[in-house]
Design a protein around this nucleic acid. Structure first.
Length: 296
DNA sequence: ATCCAGGATGTAT
DNA sequence: ATACATCATGGA
């Protein structure tokens, strides 16, 4: 294993690994101490997290102002990409609407970055997210990796990659239901087939104007506007995407009632402008984590 | 027991 | 285009 470390004081705006990985954006990392993601956003700890990307095992942990990593390859540039370490956080925040709520959320979780997940794992994660809590979505993705993903053994420890499209496409709906995916099982199976067969691929959305990209992703089974927004935001680099989930919808009702325009597209557009346009997805994600931690 | 969780789909209007 | 029922599962 190669090792290295990134001095976080060099980054624009610092970094918070726990907030980034446990805030419900990504479900493709494993916390090695076995602790479940803190639903209340409890801070602290310097746990190791691991993932497998393109056949390379990557482990990271944060110790104060140092991000330590260990990997089967030189992982530094990969980490900059996956964890958006090159995003200019102060500039992003400066471009956001600065009301009391947004300010509080940014201050509480400062250093949280919008991840850039591998697209297939992200797509499946958010198909599974329908009417599910964060901890269970994570559990589903770990189960998919454990049952159907390729194993890599390094230093006596085994790491499981998230399954490739063909690996999931080869499973039956029944096998996926055994992992407690419920009614999402056929969605995952059919979407995996679409990608494996070359019928469609999430990356075809890249480069399209934002709302066209969202529409493009809804061709996958189990993907509506909300899940499409999550994939755009957490995998494909569309930082203006504002997913409207139940938490954000209640926040709209309580704090931004004028943004409720009746349907998804118009409401999302209104909230996007309200939250700061180009980087509205950042404010949305800080807000989501903040509100969920407070249990509102 | 009832409600709810990062919703989507099929059908009727 | 919009309204509605239906879909699994488990924790509060």
């Amino acid at each position: 294993m190669r090792t290295g470390s990134v001095p976080l004081t060099d980054l624009d705006g610092g970094f918070d690994l726990q907030a980034t990985l446990e805030s419900g954006q990504t479900y493709l990392w494993t916390r090695e101490d076995g602790a479940t993601y803190a639903a209340d956003g409890a801070r602290g700890g310097d746990a190791w997290y691991s993932t497998v990307v393109d056949g390379e095992v990557i482990r990271v942990r944060q110790r104060d102002d140092l991000l330590e990593w260990e990997s089967t390859t030189d992982a530094e540039s990969r980490l900059f990409d996956l964890l958006a370490l090159d995003d200019d956080l102060p500039a992003i925040r400066a471009g956001a609407n600065d009301d009391d709520l947004i300010r509080a959320a940014y201050e509480r979780y400062w250093g949280l970055r919008i991840v850039r997940d591998p697209f297939f794992g992200c797509l499946v994660s958010f198909i599974c997210s329908a009417q599910m809590r964060v901890s269970r979505i994570h559990g589903m993705q770990l189960a998919l990796a454990r049952e159907f993903g390729t194993a890599y053994t390094v230093g006596g420890e085994t790491f499981r990659a998230f399954p490739r499209p063909d690996q999931l496409a080869a499973r039956t709906e029944g096998e996926l239901r055994e992992l407690k995916l419920g009614y999402r099982a056929p969605y995952v199976q059919r979407t995996a087939e679409m990608v494996a067969d070359g019928e469609a691929h999430p990356r075809e959305a890249v480069g399209l104007p934002y709302e066209e990209a969202r529409e493009s992703l809804t061709r996958f089974v189990g993907v509506g506007d909300k899940v499409a927004d999550c994939v755009l935001l957490f995998s494909l680099g569309y930082l203006q995407a504002v997913p409207l989930d139940t938490w954000i919808r209640s926040a709209i009702a309580e704090h931004y009632p004028e943004c409720d325009r009746g349907n998804y597209a118009k409401t999302s557009r209104a909230l996007r402008e309200r939250l700061g346009g180009e980087y509205a997805g950042y404010a949305q994600t800080y807000l989501f984590y903040y509100l969920r931690a407070r249990g509102e």
